[in-house]
């Protein structure tokens, strides 16, 4: 079973947050988006709303994101209800943006960039191989 949490239109049309059957919360950004501070805050709210009172792993699909502002990166350094975060992208641009998010600011929970969804889900469910 999967349930989607959709807020009011704008900025919620630009993102989708849902809980998948594996217990992973999926945040999917619309492609070509410049992720601002406001959008980042709304995304975190929706994730928290989905998780209610527990923590769950979070898969962020940021494929095709055009830019990530500094304000948005600062917002992502705040602790939310995600227990660990996998950033999923495809292109070299996705990789650069993701690594800015990872490298410039310190993240509050384990966070990694993946180009393979399978690898990302595996890491979210089982963590790093011993």
């Amino acid at each position: 079973m999967s349930e989607a949490v959709n807020g009011p239109p704008e900025p919620d049309r630009l993102m989708e947050v849902r809980l998948d059957p594996l217990g992973i919360v999926r945040l999917t950004w619309s492609p070509g988006l410049q992720i601002t501070d406001t959008l980042a805050r709304r995304a975190m709210e929706l994730v928290d709303l989905t998780n209610t009172d527990r923590e769950r792993p979070l898969l962020v699909d940021m494929t095709g994101t055009a830019a990530l502002t500094r304000g948005a990166r600062m917002t992502f350094t705040r602790r939310c209800s995600a227990s660990r975060i996998a950033l999923l992208g495809r292109s070299p641009v996705d990789r650069v943006i993701a690594n800015f998010a990872l490298g410039v600011s310190s993240t509050p929970v384990p966070t990694r960039f993946f180009t393979s969804e399978l690898a990302a889900v595996a890491w979210l469910r089982h963590g790093d191989p011993a």
């Binding site: 830019a67 500094r70 292109s91 070299p92 641009v93 996705d94 943006i97």
Partner: peptide
């Protein structure tokens, strides 16, 4: 502005943009 190609050159453009933003901030 990077091109829709999102290739390595665009990645460098995005990286330079982000570094410039960081520097500005």
């Amino acid at each position: 502005t990077p091109s829709p190609a999102a290739d390595e050159i665009d990645a460098v453009i995005v990286g330079v943009n982000m570094l410039a933003e960081e520097l500005q901030a």
